[in-house]
C-alpha cells in the first residue's frame, strides 16, 4: 500500500495539473468567442463568392474554353491534398479527426492507383501523417509564430497551389479542415476546390429561376472568372482557416473541461484513500498503545 507521503504527493500533483487544465480551458473559452465571431462573420463573404461563381459557372456555355481552374483539365490522376490542422496539441480529437478523414481519403485514392501529393498546413498534421505518408508530403507550411491568420496567409497558400497547377503538378485539389458547428461538435470536411465540383442541385435551382439570374457582365464572363477563381480559392482557404481556428478552440475547451473534471474525480478518490489510510495508521497506533498498556 502507498504510504501517506506518496498519497499526499500524488494529490498535490493532480491538483496542479487540474489548475493547468482549468486555466487552459479559460483561455480557450476566451479565444473561442473571438474565433467563433470571426468564423461566423466570414461566412457571408465565402457564401456570396460561391454563389457568384456558381452563377458564372452555369452561364458559361462553351465548357472547352472555360478557365481550367473552374472545369479542371479533364484528368483525375494526380491528387493534391491540403491538410489543415492546428499547430498546438492538447485539443482533444481535433487534429486526429482531420487526419483520420484525410488518411481514409488517401488510402482510397492510392487503392485506385492515383498519384498523391500532400501539403500540410499546421505542424500537428504533419507529425501525424509523416510516418505513413511521409513520402507523399511535398510541402509543410506552418504559421506557428503568427498571432492571427489573415487573408495574406491564405493568399500565400493560394499562389503556391496555382503555380503548382499551372505547372501541371496535380489535377484535383482537396482541402481538409474542421467545420465549426458548436463547442462540442466539429465536423471534419473534405472540400474539393479545383476544379469546382458541379453541383447539380444548385444548377437546377438556377435554371428554374433563370430569368432572375440573367446577369450583365462587365468585363466578359471569361475575364471575370479568370480573376475571380484564384480569389475564390483564397477565400475558401481563408474560410477553412477561420473554421479551423474556432474548432480548435472549441475542441480544446471541451477537452480541458473534461480533463478538469477527471482531475477533480481523481482528487476525490485519492483524498478518500488518503484519509482512510491515515485513519488506519491512527487506529493501528492506538491498538499498539492499548495492547502495550494491557500487557503491563
Amino acid at each position: 500500500m502507498a504510504t501517506l507521503k506518496d498519497l499526499r504527493n500524488r494529490i498535490k500533483s493532480v491538483k496542479s495539473t487540474q489548475k493547468i487544465t482549468k486555466a487552459m480551458k479559460m483561455v480557450a473559452a476566451a479565444k473561442l468567442r473571438k474565433a467563433q465571431d470571426r468564423a461566423e462573420k466570414g461566412r457571408p463573404y465565402s457564401e456570396k463568392m460561391n454563389s457568384i461563381i456558381t452563377n458564372l459557372n452555369s452561364s458559361i456555355v462553351d465548357k472547352a474554353s472555360a478557365p481550367k481552374l473552374l472545369v479542371g483539365n479533364g484528368k483525375s490522376q494526380k491528387h493534391l491534398c491540403i491538410v489543415m490542422t492546428a499547430d498546438r496539441g492538447l485539443c482533444g480529437g481535433f487534429n486526429t479527426s482531420i487526419c483520420r478523414k484525410a488518411r481514409s481519403f488517401f488510402n482510397e485514392q492510392l487503392k485506385l492507383g492515383k498519384e498523391l501529393k500532400i501539403i500540410t498546413v499546421g505542424s500537428k498534421g504533419n507529425d501525424q501523417l509523416k510516418r505513413v505518408f511521409g513520402k507523399y508530403i511535398v510541402e509543410k507550411i506552418s504559421f506557428k509564430d503568427l498571432k492571427e491568420i489573415t487573408v495574406n496567409e491564405a493568399d500565400l497558400i493560394t499562389s503556391k497551389i496555382i503555380s503548382m497547377y499551372t505547372k501541371d503538378e496535380f489535377d484535383i485539389c482537396t482541402i481538409f479542415y474542421n467545420k465549426f458547428k458548436s463547442v462540442i461538435s466539429q465536423i471534419p470536411q473534405a472540400q474539393q476546390i479545383i476544379p469546382i465540383p458541379a453541383n447539380d442541385e444548385e444548377r437546377k435551382n438556377l435554371e428554374n429561376n433563370n430569368d432572375q439570374s440573367q446577369y450583365e457582365y462587365e468585363p466578359e464572363e471569361e475575364e471575370i472568372l479568370e480573376n475571380l477563381l484564384p480569389k475564390n480559392i483564397s477565400t475558401q482557404i481563408f474560410k477553412a482557416f477561420l473554421e479551423n481556428a474556432a474548432s480548435e478552440q472549441g475542441s480544446r475547451m471541451s477537452a480541458m473541461d473534461n480533463a478538469t473534471r477527471n482531475a477533480g474525480d481523481l482528487i476525490n478518490k485519492l483524498t478518500i484513500n488518503y484519509n482512510r489510510s491515515r485513519q488506519a495508521v491512527i487506529t493501528k497506533e492506538l491498538i499498539e498503545i492499548i495492547s502495550g498498556a494491557e500487557s503491563l
Binding site: 457568384i52 452563377n55 458564372l56 471575370i224 480573376n227
Partner: peptide, 17 residues
C-alpha cells in the same frame, strides 16, 4: 473596372469588378 457607374433601383442584374 470599365468606368464609374451609379446604381439605382431596378438596375439590371450585373456582376462587375
Amino acid at each position: 473596372i470599365e468606368g464609374d457607374m451609379g446604381i439605382l433601383q431596378n438596375h439590371i442584374p450585373i456582376i462587375t469588378f
